[in-house]
Computed example of a mutant assay.
Amino acid sequence: MSMILERPNVANPVPTLPATLYRDPAQFERERQAIFTKEWLLYGRSDQLAKPGDYLALTIVGYPVVVVRQKDGTLKGFHNVCRHRAAALAQNPEGAFSGGMIRCPYHSWTYELNGCLNRSPGFGAEKGAIDPAQWSLFPISADEWRGLVFVRIATAGPTLVEWLGPIVPMAAQYPLQDQRFFMEKNQEVAIDWKVYGENYLECYHCPNMHPGLCESLDISKYTIDSYPEDGFFHLYGPKRDGGFTDGLYFYRFPFLMLNFYQWGSSIATVEPLGAGRLRHINWYLFSDLSPEKAEENRRSAEWSAQIVAEDMDMNVTVQRNLEIGVYDRGILSPKQERAVGAFQNMVRAAMPGLEG
Rank of each mutant, 00 (worst) to 15 (best):
A86M: 13
A350F: 07
E94Q: 15
V340S: 06
G356M: 14
K335E: 15
S290E: 13
T245L: 06
Y261P: 12
K76H: 14
N259G: 09
G44Y: 01
T155N: 09
I224M: 11
N259I: 05
H234W: 11
K76S: 15
N9Y: 00
P139R: 11
F28P: 00
K239F: 05
N297D: 01
A88E: 14
A305R: 05
L176H: 09
A19F: 09
W145K: 08
F138D: 13
R277L: 13
D143M: 09
R298L: 07
L17S: 04
D131G: 09
E271F: 09
W303D: 00
Y43V: 03
G237S: 10
T269C: 11
E112N: 14
L285K: 08
L49R: 01
V326I: 15
Y200V: 11
L285F: 04
V308I: 10
K239T: 04
S300L: 10
P121N: 08
C214M: 12
D311C: 01
Q33D: 05
S266K: 08
G99T: 02
L75V: 05
N259W: 00
A142H: 07
K38C: 00
G274H: 07
V308N: 09
N9G: 00
R338W: 07
E184F: 10
K194Y: 06
P291A: 08
R83A: 15
V195E: 00
A350S: 12
Y174L: 08
N9I: 00
W263E: 12
W145D: 03
F36I: 03
G231E: 12
I331F: 13
L75E: 06
N321Q: 07
P64M: 02
Y43D: 06
E229T: 14
V270C: 09
R329S: 06
G100E: 04
G264V: 07
N315G: 03
I324A: 07
N208R: 15
W40Y: 04
T159I: 08
L273V: 03
M257E: 14
T20L: 12
P166E: 03
V68T: 09
S333M: 03
I224Y: 08
G247V: 08
H210A: 10
G147P: 04
N12C: 10
S304L: 08
G330I: 08
R298I: 00
N118Y: 11
Y111M: 07
E6L: 04
T269R: 14
I153S: 01
S304P: 03
E215N: 05
G356R: 13
A190N: 09
V65C: 10
A142R: 10
F253R: 04
A342P: 07
Q262T: 03
A87S: 15
Q173H: 09
H234T: 05
V149W: 02
S120W: 14
L235Y: 14
E188P: 03
C206Y: 10
G95A: 11
Y249V: 13
A301Q: 04
P175A: 05
P254I: 02
V340L: 03
